[in-house]
């Protein structure tokens, strides 16, 4: 469904990541791994359309999305950035309801139907209690869940997140990942940048290793992502260990001090 072909992205005429190619299908969780400043955010901004591709293209189905309007994009791709808008004191429901914008006529406001969809999305994530809470006063974890609910209300097929678990406490990281997993189970495609290789090892259907201006695609990271890849990626000594938990094998990534 998503085909990225020879995509080069960067600012002005300075390319940061070049010749990126990968595909994605419904239900995929694609993890972008790479050191700070490697270009994960640049790649993400190009995928969502906030930066123009320098070369190459992004196809959805057989359409190049370069010429799509923001409205058309929003129905297919939702984006959760690292930063949050906090100038005005919107409620949780206001924010989720804004996910419906692309379905509204130019001069219309959300209908009761839109509101129902927004509330359903919040219910799915069990955050109905945040309905009337002020968004800018929420904790990082609550805000992240509200944004995920917004993406669900947006009914897009692809959800792209820039470090969704950054700044979250241990519990909220797991909650967020569980819900992202749930989104994937429902047929959404999740693309996320992350600093935790374990997320790729346990949830990822694909890992993109971003370094030195290039991207290496690892299919089925659970099987194919090796210690050596991570050593090369982060320039540190790490070891992937297997833990047996009941009848399931869990892979962990341990630093070697």
């Amino acid at each position: 469904m998503l085909y990225v072909k020879d995509l080069s992205c960067g600012y002005k005429d300075k390319p940061i990541v070049e010749k990126v190619s990968f595909n994605g299908k419904p239900g995929d969780i694609i993890c972008l791994l790479g050191p700070n400043g490697s270009g994960k955010s640049t790649l993400i901004k190009t995928l969502v359309g906030l930066l123009e591709p320098m070369e190459g293209s992004v196809y959805i189905g057989d359409e190049n999305i370069k010429t799509w309007t923001w409205n058309r994009r929003a129905k297919t791709i939702s984006y959760i950035p690292q930063t949050f808008s906090s100038t005005f004191q919107y409620t949780g429901l206001d924010i989720v309801l804004m996910g419906r914008t692309s379905y509204l006529g130019f001069g219309s406001s959300p209908t009761e139907e839109d509101e129902r969809i927004a509330l359903e999305a919040m219910e799915m994530l069990k955050i109905l209690n945040l309905k009337d809470k002020i968004y800018s006063k929420m904790s990082g974890g609550e805000r992240q869940l509200v944004k995920i609910a917004q993406a669900i209300a947006q009914q897009s097929k692809i959800i792209i997140m820039d470090e969704p678990t950054n700044n979250l406490d241990f519990g909220n990281q797991i909650t967020t990942l569980n819900y992202l997993n749930k989104c994937a189970d429902r047929g959404m495609m999740v693309i996320m940048a992350t600093h935790f290789p374990e997320q790729a090892l346990s949830f990822g259907t694909k890992a993109l290793l971003v370094k030195n201006g290039g991207v290496e695609v690892v299919e089925e990271p659970e099987k194919n992502l090796k210690d050596a890849d991570l050593k090369k990626l982060y320039d540190v000594d790490v070891e992937i260990v297997e833990l047996r938990r009941k009848d399931k094998i869990v892979k962990m990534c341990l630093p070697v001090y």
Binding site: G49, L50, Y79, T83, S85, M98, Q150, Q154
Partner: peptide
Amino acid sequence: NVLSLEEGEAKTLGLN
């Protein structure tokens, strides 16, 4: 309302 969000958020929510 949507315009009062961060630029990137407003655009990716479908706002011109």
